[in-house]
Amino acid sequence: MGNIKDIIKKAAGLTSGTTVGLGNEINRSEWLRNVLQQVPAGSRLLDAGAGEQPYRPFCSHLHYVSQDIGEYDGKGEVGLQTERWDFGKLDIVSDIASIPEPDGAFDAILCSEVIEHIPDPVRVFGEFSRLLRPGGHLILTAPFCSLTHFAPNHFCTGFSRFFYEYHLDANGFELSELSYNGNYFGYLAQELLRLNSVAQKYTASPLSRSERIRINKLLKTIERLDGADSGSRELLCYGIHIHARKR
């Protein structure tokens, strides 16, 4: 974790000593690790939109099946891109809304940071409902708010709790857990940490030393407010984590 934080801060040119704004990926990975451990050993799990399969190590006790359309190459001219991308060996290459498996084929489905890249995410909920046996687990994460990334396959900037409560219920799911990743202050800090790289790309004018010093001071103020937070996640956060069961 320390290495990830150091890399982000080095790229941003910031040295405030704060940790606010650095939790997005770390929090999500820890939540997924804990929830996946709740899935009984030997269960058949579909990692839908598996990408580079970063959470496969959390599924060593499960019969893991990876699926992706397998088209992204890391390159693009719009927004944030990864430059490189390696799907590895996928078990299923298909449209996520039409997966060639029979009804009730899986005990659990993992879908992490995917549905913002789907033109019709509600249709995907219907497909997940079809693929899960009754009582099966749906483990899903997606942004509450995000910058343009993986374009042109970026169709939604994010989803609120009300989206999940309505559409999961309508597709036969009962929520077991809905949790927020981060809050308003953490999100602001995340974007301040990204400011230097965005300025370099879109203005050809990196932050000056005095500007970085001022941002470091602001990050300390944001960290103080983050420590006193009592519910700003309802306004803004990194994302929402869902654990639901098929009725």
Results as ranks from 00 to 15, higher is better:
Leu175Asn: 03
Leu168His: 08
Ala244Asn: 02
Ser179Gln: 13
Arg194Ser: 13
Ala151Leu: 10
Asp107Pro: 00
Ala228Thr: 13
Leu46Asn: 05
Asp91Val: 11
Arg194Glu: 11
Gly42Ile: 09
Thr141Pro: 12
Gly2Ser: 11
Leu175Glu: 00
Val39Asn: 02
Leu62Gly: 05
Pro57Leu: 06
Glu191Met: 09
Ile242Val: 15
Pro143Gln: 08
Pro143Val: 06
Leu193Ser: 00
Phe87Tyr: 15
Leu110Tyr: 07
Glu116Ser: 03
Val122Leu: 05
Gly126Arg: 12
Lys220Arg: 08
Phe150Leu: 13
His137Pro: 04
Glu223Met: 04
Arg44Tyr: 09
Ala199Leu: 15
Gln190Trp: 06
His167Met: 01
Ile4Arg: 11
Ser16Phe: 02
Leu90Glu: 00
Leu147Lys: 12
Leu132Val: 00
His149Met: 00
Cys156Lys: 14
Gly17Cys: 02
Arg130Gln: 03
Gly74Val: 05
Gly13Ile: 10
Tyr238Met: 11
Phe159Pro: 14
Asp6Ile: 10
Asp169Gln: 15
Tyr72Asn: 00
Phe106Arg: 13
Glu211Pro: 01
Trp85Asp: 02
Gly2Thr: 11
Tyr164Gln: 06
Gly172Met: 02
Ile4His: 13
His154Cys: 09
Ile69Gly: 10
Ala142Gln: 09
Val114Phe: 08
Leu22Pro: 05
Ile242Asp: 10
Leu207Gln: 08
Pro40Leu: 01
Ile8Phe: 04
Tyr72Glu: 02
Gly186Asp: 09
Ala41Gln: 12
Gly239Ile: 04
His241Thr: 12
Ala142Glu: 04
Gly2Tyr: 05
Lys220His: 08
Gly158Glu: 14
Leu45Trp: 03
Val124Glu: 00
Phe162Ile: 14
Lys89Val: 12
Asn196Glu: 14
Arg224Leu: 12
Tyr166Ile: 10
Arg84Lys: 14
Asn183Met: 00
His243Glu: 09
Tyr187Met: 08
Ser230Pro: 02
Leu147Pro: 04
Thr221Trp: 13
Pro206Gln: 06
Thr203Gly: 04
Pro121Thr: 05
Phe159Gln: 05
Pro152Thr: 07
Pro54Gln: 04
Ser230Cys: 08
Leu218Cys: 02
Lys10Gln: 10
Phe144Gln: 12
Glu177Val: 01
Ala151Asn: 07
Lys89Asp: 15
Leu207Ala: 09
His167Lys: 04
Lys75Phe: 05
Ser205Ala: 13
Val78Asn: 15
